[in-house]
């Protein structure tokens, strides 16, 4: 039997892709946590990040792992502007209006990208794309770590850790958390909540764009690429608990693991069915997410 190597290979694959799901979901969770808005257009920023990194690679030869920082900065400012113009007016509006504003934004962004960038599929070629580390090789098979996924995973860890540091160890981060818990009180304490909302949205879409850029070595950029990720993102965020940044990390890695282990038992075709069933069950049994602690 090759079961031990198969098991570890599946585990590694699941964790590596899960780390990426984690980083793209963190931003979505942050936006919900601070503004209580579910942003259906969020995956479009992943697409934007991929295109920015692609252009940086194609015209300046910048590796996507570095291009990710450019993507982060550009989308951060785009996000701040969008928050100001589009999201701010609907904070506190009925949920239906919030949902469908972001759905409209999704259509506009996806097709805006088609107008701007064209329908071509954009892909980078880097040296590490076809390389893998061999962790183990023996009678029972091999355990491989693909380099492109390893790099993306490490970059995801880096951005997650930075965001955690920002939220928990800086005064702006504290102000942001205060805004999310009680905007009125935060305002009374002299926090500029409007500014906090803008920064939170900018950071939220920025980290997702960053996540898009680091997966460019193995996912092709196209205007519709966001739709590949939108349901995965929501699943990760819900599994971890809507609004919890740490939860999004756990949720992302869980989604990765569910997908890869589901493929061992069931046909690969059904990997997302497994995911949806778990998703609905988690929502039903523990809507605050699997990582939520009891509030006192």
């Amino acid at each position: 039997m090759q079961s031990i190597t198969t098991f570890f290979q599946t585990l590694i694959d699941g964790v590596l892709i899960g780390g990426v799901y984690a980083v793209i979901s963190i931003g979505l969770s942050l936006v919900f946590g601070v503004m209580h808005i579910v942003n259906f257009a969020h995956a479009e920023f992943l697409m934007l990040g991929m295109f920015i990194a692609w252009f940086a690679w194609a015209y300046a030869g910048i590796d996507p792992m570095l291009g990710a920082f450019i993507a982060l900065i550009i989308t951060f400012f785009i996000g701040m502007g969008m928050q100001r113009v589009l999201i701010k007016p609907i904070i506190g509006a009925p949920q239906v209006a919030q949902i469908f504003l972001t759905v409209g934004l999704l259509f506009a962004m996806e097709n805006g990208a088609l107008l701007l960038f064209g329908a071509d599929f954009r892909s980078v070629s880097t040296s590490y794309q076809t390389q893998a580390l061999t962790l183990f090789s023996g009678e029972s098979g091999r355990i491989l770590v693909p380099l492109d996924k390893l790099y993306a995973f490490l970059m995801a860890l880096l951005s997650g850790a930075s965001l955690w540091f920002f939220l928990n160890r800086t005064s702006w981060g504290r102000a942001m958390r205060a805004t999310s818990q009680d905007p009125m009180a935060a305002k009374l304490m002299g926090i500029n909540t409007d500014k906090m909302y803008m920064i939170a949205f900018g950071l939220g879409v920025g980290t997702t764009a960053f996540g898009g850029a680091v997966i460019l070595p193995y996912i092709t950029a196209s205007p519709t690429v966001g739709s590949q990720f939108v349901v995965l993102m929501f699943t990760a965020v819900v599994l971890g608990g809507l609004g919890s940044v740490a939860g999004a990390v756990v949720g992302g890695i869980m989604v990765g693991l569910i997908q890869s282990f589901s493929a061992l038992i069931l046909p690969i075709q059904l990997q997302n069915l497994t995911l949806f069933v778990i998703f609905i069950l988690v929502l039903a049994l523990k809507p605050e997410g699997l990582t939520a602690r009891r509030r006192s």
Binding site: Q2, T6, Q9, T10, D13, I17, F121, G141, R142, P146, K149, I219, T220, S222, V225, S227, Q228, F229, L232, G256, Q259, S260, A263, L264, I268, Q269, Q271, N272
Partner: peptide, 30 residues
Amino acid sequence: YPLGITDVSPLINQLRRSDAQVVFPVSYLN
């Protein structure tokens, strides 16, 4: 496998174990 698969590792792992002589992938670009 589902359209828009984000990670083909499970497929390729299976291919490696299958000992096939040729592989026929039927898919779009990504």
